[in-house]
Amino acid sequence: MSLKVATWNINSVRLRIGLVTKLLERWQPDVLCLQETKCPQGQFPSGPIRDAGYEHIAEFGQKGYHGVAIVSRRPFLAQATKPFCGKEDCRHISVTVAGTKPITIHNLYVPAGGDEPDPKINEKFAHKLQFIDELEAWFGKGCVPKGHESILVGDLNIAPLEHDVWSHKDLLKVVSHTPIETEGLLRIQKKGKWVDLLRQHVPADQKLYTWWSYRARDWLAADRGRRLDHIWSTAGLAPNCGKIDILKEARGWEQPSDHVPVMASFTAA
């Protein structure tokens, strides 16, 4: 049984619902995880999603900010959310779907962190570092249920490796690529024994981006991207990931998100 899981920071699901259905119809993922839905709980545009064949929807939303959701053609065996940093700001949702073994899919939206990489003067950056610490502690306790495989996706707002950014040297002091963030994300990966599936398929010495700023007049020509969106899996599932797609063309669609969808295709999952 094959499984295709996609992740996309949609930057307002109601504004871009047409792009969501375009993705679903064109690439046919079994599961799509969305971040930054900016949609109050209960107001998710489920009608067009269900019309596209995705009957199963889990959402965790709030007005105007943040928000995560998972839509699926496979039914959910369970679903949950987890608060971080003492806040109810809708940054995590998980579902479990049936597979060769049950597969728990975690969908995360890590805080962006603001502009100044100093937690003493920037509360947003302090929040991001606290979030990273709590995520590391959580996965260190073995949050993947015994007998399950697991997939972690989302806008993690960190480009951890040198070639995950257009210029390692220029971005070392820029939020999303500072050493304190990148080292923290790699600790989370190690603590949870996660496999970085994008880098399983694309060597670490090759440039790889999933986000291009709105500020660039011509984002494609400038190509100053960052890899902020990730798909990880447990080690037992990683060998079944036969393909990764970064759907770059979505960045050129009308009224696009500044992130593009990323999709992993699994066999026997």
Score class of each variant (00 low, 15 high):
A137D: 15
E25N: 14
I49S: 03
G140P: 12
P256S: 10
K63W: 08
T267V: 14
C143A: 06
L198G: 00
V260W: 08
I105E: 12
W232C: 08
H177R: 03
K191I: 14
C33N: 00
P239Q: 04
L220D: 08
A80D: 08
T234D: 02
W8T: 04
M1K: 06
L186G: 03
P261D: 12
A126P: 15
A112H: 07
P83E: 15
P261S: 11
F60I: 05
G147I: 05
V195I: 09
H163N: 10
V31F: 10
E136S: 11
D170S: 02
G42N: 05
K191L: 12
Y65E: 14
H230S: 08
S72Y: 02
V20D: 09
D245Q: 08
G236Q: 04
L247Y: 03
K193E: 03
I188N: 00
G53T: 10
R187D: 12
P203M: 07
A204W: 00
R199N: 02
G242S: 11
V175W: 05
H56V: 00
C241E: 02
K146L: 00
L3Q: 15
A235R: 14
R16E: 04
L15I: 01
L220P: 08
R73H: 06
L185V: 05
L77N: 10
K120M: 09
Q41V: 13
A250D: 11
I246A: 00
S233R: 15
S94A: 01
T7H: 04
L77H: 09
K82D: 10
A221F: 12
A98L: 11
R91A: 05
G147A: 07
E88C: 07
R227F: 04
I10A: 06
E254W: 09
Q189V: 09
R227L: 06
D245Y: 05
A159K: 11
E181M: 09
L135S: 01
Q41I: 13
L161Q: 01
G184E: 13
K173A: 06
K141S: 13
E88Y: 12
R50N: 11
S213P: 05
G64I: 14
D30N: 07
Q189H: 01
P256D: 04
W219F: 05
I231G: 00
A137S: 14
I105P: 12
V175K: 11
L186A: 06
D218A: 06
A216M: 06
P83M: 13
L77V: 10
K191C: 14
G113C: 09
A137G: 12
P40T: 15
A222K: 11
I121G: 07
H127L: 06
P179Y: 00
R73I: 02
H92S: 00
S176N: 13
R226P: 07
E162T: 14
K190M: 13
E123Q: 13
S176L: 07
R224N: 06
P119Q: 14
Q130N: 08
N11A: 02
W232R: 14
